[in-house]
């Protein structure tokens, strides 16, 4: 899983055009990401990174670990509920939008 994490960091750095000397060399942790952000590297907090990484893992098919954390970690449970509410709101809006099209 550390390998997937390193790949994900590289992807984020590529997207943000981080020069090679400012890229993270080593595992992504609270301290290492904070250190890189201070030195002009990838501007992301560890708390935000791990959420994004989890979503990335979900797209890769690691359902077990994603479901587990989303049901056991309180902050993720709330986040999931919030997302579900947003989705429901969007679904309610959609019919109106479709009706507007002649």
């Amino acid at each position: 899983m550390a390998g997937y994490s390193a790949q994900f960091v590289k992807t984020l750095e590529r997207q943000a055009d981080i020069p090679k000397e400012k890229q993270l060399n080593g595992p992504a942790s609270l301290q290492s990401l904070k250190d890189r952000a201070e030195k002009g590297g990838l501007q992301i907090l560890f708390a935000e990174y791990r959420v994004q990484y989890l979503e990335h893992l979900e797209t890769k098919g690691f359902d077990g670990v994603c479901d587990f954390l989303q049901e056991c970690i309180t902050s993720l449970v709330q986040r999931r509920l919030q997302k579900a509410e947003e989705k429901e709101g969007l679904e309610e809006v959609e019919p109106t939008a479709a009706a507007a099209i002649p």
Binding site: M1, D63, G64, V65, D67, F68, L69, C72
Partner: peptide
């Protein structure tokens, strides 16, 4: 990663 992810899912089902 397959084993790690699946055991997490299994533990969740037990929970």
């Amino acid at each position: 990663g397959m084993a790690m992810s699946r055991i997490c899912g299994i533990i969740l089902q037990f929970k």
